[in-house]
Write a protein that binds this DNA or RNA. Sequence first.
DNA 1: TATTATCCTAGTAAGTCTATAGGATAATAG
DNA 2: CTATTATCCTATAGACTTACTAGGATAATA
Lengths: 141, 141
Amino acid sequence: MLSKKTKYGIKALVHLARQEDRMPVQISTISKSENISQKFLESILLTLKKNGLLGSKKGKGGGYYLLKNPKEIPMTTVMRLLEGPIAMVPCVSLNFYEKCADCPDEDTCAVNKIMLKVRDNTLEIFRNTSLADLSNSKVTL
Amino acid sequence: MLSKKTKYGIKALVHLARQEDRMPVQISTISKSENISQKFLESILLTLKKNGLLGSKKGKGGGYYLLKNPKEIPMTTVMRLLEGPIAMVPCVSLNFYEKCADCPDEDTCAVNKIMLKVRDNTLEIFRNTSLADLSNSKVTL
DNA sequence: TATTATCCTAGTAAGTCTATAGGATAATAG
DNA sequence: CTATTATCCTATAGACTTACTAGGATAATA
């Protein structure tokens, strides 16, 4: 299950991607529009900024804005940043790999195999879906 | 990420599926063979039993055994039982559906759309993979 | 200088995860 | 019958994570 942080983060990013002029949007605006607790959203946007997805401007007329074209932001990036690993087990994760303590041999591990397959599928979807795709509400993914 | 409960549960089921005669296998045997805490495994096997996947026998020569042919146990069943929903958000879950509190309209929700696609893909893999598939270590899934 | 809005650290209540404890129950062996 | 074996069952505890909230510092604008 996705954490709320991830869900809210994606929603906020989509909101910003729909802002065609890249003018700053205030936290409070997104918060109201997407029904997200403002303080919580604040912390989420901050991490998105620290990780290079968003820019910000302080003071009146300030807010957050996307730094790149939504087409150039794949969901893999968003998911890894907000949720962490895309894989269901660390031993099949590309970016967050960890050996399982209980498993002597990954090559013969049944869990490893099926979860690798699931990861490959999920990964391909996220790779081929950009923020721009999510933002266009009329297009069926 | 999969919980350890799910991971251990799958491993135990695979262990039992590999037991070709359907003779009872003791918790301690599985526990040692799969490097799982015995007490924890005990509680996992108990829930698998309560949910109709396993049978058990008490006393000497007792243990747990599969009630069905591994070919007839799809991973969807196993996953839902141990991990819960297969979907990443409740609003696209078939068996654990819940409306999102923050989302006024699922049809126009970007998160809903992509997570539906991911669920469809993952679901198909789990549907088409049985315990028997996982048990045969030589076959590539 | 007043106002606005992000920046930043810290904390907290509630829930979940990963077990463990300890005894009750049932089956078998002798 | 009784000792042994192994599951059954409830309860609990410590560690961790989640979903926020508090409160002030900083910077930009008017």
